[in-house]
């Protein structure tokens, strides 16, 4: 992990509402090299907000503050909106939860792939098309020529998500942020899609931020894991050392999942300690 692709220090995201200020993310720090970082937490823990904040996708009344967000040394916070548009997709791509909402329903898959590539590189249409087909092939889509002509509603959820991955990786970004990329998919398809994503990220030497609520899944596909609770990182560890996790919240998450192979009469219920909320954020910098 010599090279740091992304460096975030003391990131805060807050929303001002009628009843006061709500802090979704409260001062977290992490770095990302050419590795796979998992961010795990329950709904409301601020994990998705973190992903969006890096891409500056949070709209008012939301506010993003940080001591530093740099991408390859470039200051994201100071970048102009035009520069941001180049970065999004060009340097960093994001895959959202449901392909149904991320793909434009009135454009064919091929048109969207070509468009997304042309937005970042000045290439001839035929060249774009060639690369799009090659990319679809890489995400294990059979008969990519045919799929190029399909509309999003004509493809299944799993294929839709693979198309999304293809689209996001087409301009060759260095960082991929995957926000619950497979929660909308069936279990059997889930693993297949994640395997494909994993392979691509590894072979291209990209940095991956995998945001999910599923600790086991993240442990399987990541090198490092940051566990978020109430807008802070409560624990950060290597995925291979997850079983050595200390924080009661992490343990609670692990034990709350019903396990087919090891049945228990009662599931463990997480007792939330108010002190977790106030404990300082653990740094996930390397």
């Amino acid at each position: 992990m010599s090279e740091t692709l992304l460096d975030v220090e003391n990131l805060r995201v807050s929303f001002t509402t009628r009843t006061g200020t709500f802090e979704a993310v409260r001062g977290i720090s992490f770095t990302l090299g050419r590795e796979r970082l998992g961010i795990v937490g329950e709904s409301g823990s601020g994990k998705s907000m973190t992903g969006r904040a890096i891409l500056r996708l949070i709209r008012p009344p939301g506010r993003v503050e940080a001591d530093r967000i740099t991408m390859h040394g470039e200051d994201v916070l100071a970048a102009t909106e035009t520069r941001m548009r180049q970065l999004r997709g060009g340097r960093v791509s994001m895959i959202m939860q449901d392909p149904k909402f991320s793909l434009n329903p009135v454009m064919t898959v091929g048109q969207q792939l070509v468009e997304s590539l042309r937005a970042h590189e000045k290439l001839a249409r035929s060249e774009c098309r060639k690369r799009a087909i090659a990319m679809l092939d890489e995400v294990a889509i059979r008969d990519p020529e045919r799929v190029m002509g399909l509309y999003p509603h004509e493809v299944s959820g799993g294929m839709g998500q693979r198309i999304m991955i293809a689209m996001m990786l087409l301009p060759g970004p260095e960082i991929l942020i995957a926000d619950e990329p497979t929660s909308a998919l069936d279990v059997s398809v889930q693993l297949q899609v994640l395997d494909i994503m994993d392979q691509l990220v590894k072979t291209r030497g990209m940095g991956l931020i995998f945001i999910s609520h599923d600790l086991n899944l993240v442990a399987k596909f990541c090198d490092r894991i940051a566990v978020m609770y109430a807008g802070r990182i409560v624990e950060c560890c290597k995925a291979s050392e997850l079983h050595k996790a200390q924080h009661p919240y992490t343990l609670g998450l692990l034990n709350a999942v019903p396990d087919l192979e090891h049945p228990r009469p009662r599931l463990e219920v997480l007792q939330r300690d108010p002190a977790w909320r106030d404990a300082l954020s653990v740094s996930a910098r390397t």
Binding site: V187, S188, L191, N216, L217, K220, L242, H243, D259, L260
Partner: peptide, 14 residues
């Protein structure tokens, strides 16, 4: 069996 396999794989950490 296929369903069981994928379910067990995704719930078992690496």
């Amino acid at each position: 069996r296929q369903l069981l396999d994928s379910s067990i794989q995704s719930s078992r950490s690496a």
